[in-house]
């Protein structure tokens, strides 16, 4: 038996919005640790890893590990029926083939439940080893989103370089080229407005902008994003979900043959 009660239901709504354009179908894994997911996009270029820790739920009951295959677009449709202030409860029976989403409004005078059929999906989990990254940059998530959007009006790919000077985003296209440099800046009013650059080694990698733009759908989940880069490794963009966990996106680079 599985029963997860999330008081801040809007978090789950935002999580689905952040993933549904990247991934069509995915297995949600539920264990004593929490509610998690690892899934790749159809071209196996990008991967999303989600963790909502059990402690973040008001009530968390998971008698045995359960894997639930769902179409993320359908889950998103159901969650759109929940109000932003609603409490969301996810329920499933062991070995059952359905999941129920229950929404309670704050006044507790409207309770809705939606039952959805589960899917049998092949699990394609990748082992992601802990790595020492050459550079780790934390910056406001809105700034990162703005940069990806602006550059994609000029080019399709972006070169992200980290040096002592800062993090540089460069693109080129038919109309010309563009460079945006963000320098380390810790003299800000609020810590989440800072740009913090941790660099062990200079690094420069090329990525497809359309995937980065898709990752920025997670912007509303966190005021900051942490971008980790190493030559010969996929980029990681991590959005922390306050008190609960994270959503991490991995993106394979473009490399000269």
């Amino acid at each position: 038996m599985l029963e997860l009660r999330l008081v801040q239901g809007s978090l789950l709504k935002k999580v689905l919005e952040a993933m549904k354009d990247l991934v069509t179908d995915a297995n949600f894994d539920c264990s004593a640790t929490g509610f998690s997911l690892q899934a790749m996009d159809s071209s196996h270029v990008a991967l999303v890893a989600l963790l909502l820790r059990s402690e973040g739920f008001e009530h968390y009951r998971c008698d045995r590990n359960i894997t639930m295959g769902m179409n993320l677009n359908n889950v998103s449709k159901l969650l759109k029926c929940a109000g932003n202030d609603d409490i969301i409860t996810i329920k499933a029976d062991d070995g059952g083939d359905t999941v129920t989403f229950m929404f309670e409004n704050p006044k507790q005078d409207k309770i809705s439940d939606f039952e959805m059929k589960l899917m049998d999906l092949d699990s394609e989990h990748l082992g992601i080893p802990d790595a020492e990254y050459h550079a780790i940059v934390r910056m406001p998530s809105l700034e990162f989103s703005r940069i990806c959007k602006d550059l994609s009006s000029i080019g399709d790919t972006v070169v992200i370089s980290v040096t002592k000077e800062g993090i540089k985003f460069s693109t080129r296209g038919d109309i010309g080229n563009a460079n945006i440099v963000c320098r380390q800046n810790t003299t800000v009013d609020k810590p989440e407005e800072a740009t913090v650059i941790q660099m062990n080694e200079a690094v420069s990698l090329t990525f497809a902008l359309r995937y980065l733009n898709s990752f920025t759908k997670a912007t509303s989940l966190s005021e900051t994003v942490t971008i980790s880069l190493s030559s010969e490794l996929p980029l990681v963009a991590e959005y922390k979900i306050a008190d609960m966990g994270y959503i991490k996106f991995y993106l394979a680079p473009k490399i000269e043959d």
């Binding site: 790749m40 196996h44 270029v45 989990h125 990748l126 680079p253 490399i255």
Partner: peptide, 14 residues
């Protein structure tokens, strides 16, 4: 032109 890599080049299936 740089070629788009896939994740399996970097991470092995579990």
């Amino acid at each position: 032109k740089p070629k788009q890599q896939v994740l399996s080049r970097f991470f092995a299936p579990k």
